[in-house]
């Protein structure tokens, strides 16, 4: 490349003036940023287009699914919590009991999600972003 010849001469350090240094370094800065931006801009456009194509493609007709097992109303606990979930929660609470203390689960109510994140996702976010 042309500028490599220029840079090779400059690298030999033979009588570099301030103008040589500023022009060479300035040229490198411009070329470098231009190339980095160009490559990443190209990637932006490619993946933007890609995303549009992926989300515009018609969804294939879903094959008739086998009827899902629906828990009977009698099996689900109050507020839609199944007995299995309630049992798991009771087991988790039991595992947290301090010595000599016994808790009794009287009610299991699904927590209302606040803001735009489901409660479970919010708990994960809080865990990841605790102060450091």
């Amino acid at each position: 490349m042309i500028w490599q010849g220029v840079y090779t001469a400059a690298q030999n350090g033979a009588g570099e003036t301030a103008s040589d240094i500023f022009s060479g370094a300035g040229l490198t800065t411009l070329i470098g940023m231009a190339v980095v931006f160009s490559v990443l801009l190209l990637l932006t456009l490619v993946f933007k287009l890609f995303g549009l194509l992926m989300h515009r493609a018609p969804k294939p007709a879903a094959a008739p699914a086998a009827p899902a097992a629906v828990p009977s109303p009698a099996a689900a606990g109050p507020h839609g919590v199944s007995p299995e979930i309630a049992a798991v929660i009771a087991g988790a609470v039991a595992a947290m009991e301090p010595e000599g203390v016994h808790y009794q689960v009287r009610r299991v109510v699904p927590a209302a999600s606040s803001g735009q994140h489901p409660t479970w996702a919010q708990a994960g976010l809080l865990e990841q972003t605790r102060p450091f």
Binding site: I21, G26, T28, T29, L40, T44, L45, F47
Partner: peptide
């Protein structure tokens, strides 16, 4: 992937590299 504009932010942050290159070369003066 869900926000491809982020590529450009990744590019802009590389300004530190080339600015420092300029500074390192000018230091000899």
């Amino acid at each position: 992937l869900s926000n491809p504009k982020s590529f450009l932010l990744g590019a802009a942050a590389q300004l530190g590299i080339f600015f420092t290159f300029f500074g390192a070369r000018a230091l000899g003066l």
